[in-house]
Simulated assay, not measured.
Amino acid sequence: MSGATGLDHVGLLTRDGPALWGVYERLGFTLTPVSRQSNEGGPLATGNRCAMLRHGYLELLALIEPALPDNGVGRMIERFEGAHILALGMEDPEGNLARLRRAGLEIAGVAPLSRPVTDDGPVAQFERLPLPDAPEGRVQLVRHLTPDLLWQPRWTEHANGATELREAILVADRPAESAARLSRLAGLALEPDRDGGFALPLPNGRVRVLAPEVSAVILPGVEMPSRPAIAGIVLGTTDAGTTRRHLGHLPLRETPAGVMVPPSHAGGVALVFAR
């Protein structure tokens, strides 16, 4: 299949991994162990922990050893610490590479990435097709070669009730341009967003691309330090009451989609737990 197959994950970037990981554990997420990343050139400066959901996941990526190559992560963190990675699933890397080249994108080839799942344990492997020079951040197609290593039951149950990644919300001063880039990468058609702007529908969720005035209604009080950017993430839950009880100590905001943890308490991105 040549085209995006779903909403795979959203990634947050930080200089201080332990601090961000602690924030998400206090939010009620069960995180995978710290995992160092590598590519075909060797070890990278980055390492992550992830909140694996039944569908999709959140990646919490940190600069662990800045002296090593960082694959562009440091440059993105200089913009702001928060959500910079938007990954859509794919099944056919070579077919998608050919499609994107026909569309005029200069992509060198399928980019491999790997990381051990646990210390001295099995290695998870991925294939990526990043959108070159995307101002929105690292927007990419990704294929999991070893999904069973990541989606283990011990990591997919969360005290806050989160079960699935439903939406990523991009805010852009020129939403039509950002939406067109996203559609080109995904190989899928856009549709009008219900609140104004654009939406990319996917089999297991969607990406919304909104102007700042629309985003201000969807995500009240959220202002991004620069645009275009991933401003919000919407998660499905098993039970809204469980979520509210677990997060009751935080300054939650009501939104049209559900209850929102503001960026100041979620690593730089608005985290909405849907009703």
Rank of each mutant, 00 (worst) to 15 (best):
G3T: 03
G3D: 03
G6V: 07
L7K: 02
D8F: 01
V10N: 01
T14D: 05
R15L: 12
D16Y: 11
G17W: 05
P18W: 03
A19P: 02
L20H: 12
W21S: 05
G22I: 02
V23M: 11
V23H: 00
F29K: 00
T30Y: 02
L31W: 08
P33L: 04
S35A: 15
Q37K: 06
N39E: 08
E40C: 00
G41H: 14
G42W: 07
A45M: 13
G47T: 06
G47I: 01
A51M: 06
R54L: 11
G56I: 05
Y57A: 05
E59S: 10
I64T: 14
N71G: 09
G74D: 13
R75I: 01
I77H: 06
F80T: 09
H84A: 11
A87T: 08
L88A: 08
M90K: 01
E91K: 14
L97V: 03
R99W: 10
R99N: 01
L100D: 03
A111T: 10
P112K: 00
S114V: 08
P116L: 02
A124S: 14
R128K: 02
P130G: 04
L131W: 13
P132H: 13
P135C: 07
E136T: 15
Q140R: 13
L141I: 08
T146I: 11
T146W: 04
D148R: 14
D148W: 12
L149H: 12
L149F: 06
E157P: 00
E157I: 05
N160E: 08
A162H: 02
E164M: 04
L165K: 05
V171H: 02
V171F: 07
A172S: 15
P175Q: 14
P175E: 15
E177V: 14
E177K: 13
E177G: 01
A179K: 08
R181S: 09
R184K: 13
A186T: 05
G187C: 12
G187N: 05
D193L: 04
G197C: 07
G197W: 02
P201S: 14
L202Y: 02
E213M: 11
A216E: 15
P220D: 11
E223G: 00
M224C: 10
S226E: 15
G236D: 11
D239A: 11
T242Y: 01
R245W: 08
G248T: 11
G248F: 03
H249V: 12
L250Q: 11
P251K: 09
R253V: 13
E254R: 12
T255I: 05
P256I: 13
G258E: 02
M260H: 04
P262S: 14
S264Q: 15
H265Y: 14
G268A: 06
V269L: 07
V272M: 04
A274T: 04
